[in-house]
Each structure stands twice: as C-alpha cells, then as structure tokens.
Amino acid sequence: MTADESLGRLDDDDYPAYTMGRAAELIGTTPGFLRALGEARLITPLRSEGGHRRYSRYQLRIAARARELVDQGTPIEAACRIIILEDQLEEAQRINAEYRRAGASLGPAADA
C-alpha cells in the first residue's frame, strides 16, 4: 500500500483509525462507556491484529450522540434504541427522497 492510499483511509468515515482510549478521549467519555455501547450492540468496533478495539469516525459520532442522551438522563438502553430509530428514520427519508426525485424525472406521465 502506498503512502497516498494510507492517508486516503483517514478520509474514510468507516476506517477504524481510533483506539479505545483515543476514541473515549475524543468524545469526552470513558472506555467503559464505549464497551457498554458495544454490549448494547449500538456499535461494534473492529479488532486490530492484537485484538484491540478500533473505532471509526462514524462510530464516534454514534457514541457521541449516545453520550449526549445519557448526559440528559436517558438510560443507556433507551439511548441506544433512540439512536437506532433515528438512523432508521433518516434512511427511510433518504429512500423516500430518492423515489420522489425518480418520479419527478419521469414527468406527468408517472402520475397517470
């Protein structure tokens, strides 16, 4: 792998670039909180060759949202469920928008 390919990975939202300690530090929480999110199956960190947890930027955004909800007094299990439902809603809205765009590009005949 070239140096450019290695650096390109850092732009990948799904690349597991962060160790547990660094991930916890970035979102202002503890490694135990990240482990709890894993146990609740909200996020599943990848494992390094040595077996250490590694987190992506996408996973850190999810963990930060969970931390926000928990800090507001939401139990961790409920916070995880809320985030899953928010994600499902966002995906449904994205699909709906795609269908609308596809229907609009077909013109008035699509309504007949």
Rank of each mutant, 00 (worst) to 15 (best):
P31W: 03
P31M: 00
E91H: 14
S56G: 14
T19G: 15
D14S: 11
R100H: 14
T74G: 08
A79M: 09
Y18H: 14
P75F: 06
R9A: 05
E91L: 12
G51I: 04
E25Y: 10
R61F: 02
R61D: 09
L85H: 03
A3T: 12
G50N: 06
E91T: 14
D87N: 08
I84N: 04
A36Y: 11
A23R: 06
G103K: 01
Y18N: 01
A63N: 14
A110W: 09
V70P: 04
D111A: 14
G50H: 09
R57N: 15
A63L: 14
G73K: 10
E86C: 07
S105F: 02
P75E: 10
A110Q: 07
G21K: 03
I62S: 00
A64L: 12
G32L: 12
R54V: 00
I83Y: 00
Y58M: 12
G51C: 04
P45M: 04
S56Q: 08
Y18W: 11
I62G: 00
D87G: 15
S56K: 02
Q59D: 05
D111T: 11
E5L: 05
Q93N: 13
Y99H: 14
G38S: 11
L106D: 05
G73C: 02
R94E: 12
A23L: 06
A110D: 03
R9G: 12
P31I: 02
L85T: 03
S48P: 04
D13A: 11
L69Y: 15
M1Q: 10
P16A: 00
T44Q: 13
A110E: 05
A17E: 15
R47Q: 14
I84V: 13
Q72I: 00
A79E: 09
R54P: 07
I27C: 01
I27Y: 07
P45D: 03
A78N: 07
L7I: 10
T19C: 00
G103A: 12
P45A: 03
E90G: 02
G50Y: 03
A17S: 12
A104I: 06
I95C: 00
E77L: 04
I43D: 00
S105D: 15
S56C: 11
E91V: 11
Y55Q: 09
E90F: 03
A97K: 12
C80I: 10
A64N: 14
A17H: 12
D87Y: 09
Q93I: 06
R94A: 15
I43H: 00
L37Y: 02
L10K: 02
I76E: 02
L60V: 01
R35V: 08
A110G: 01
R94P: 08
T19S: 13
R101C: 01
G73I: 01
L89E: 09
T74N: 08
P16G: 00
A64C: 10
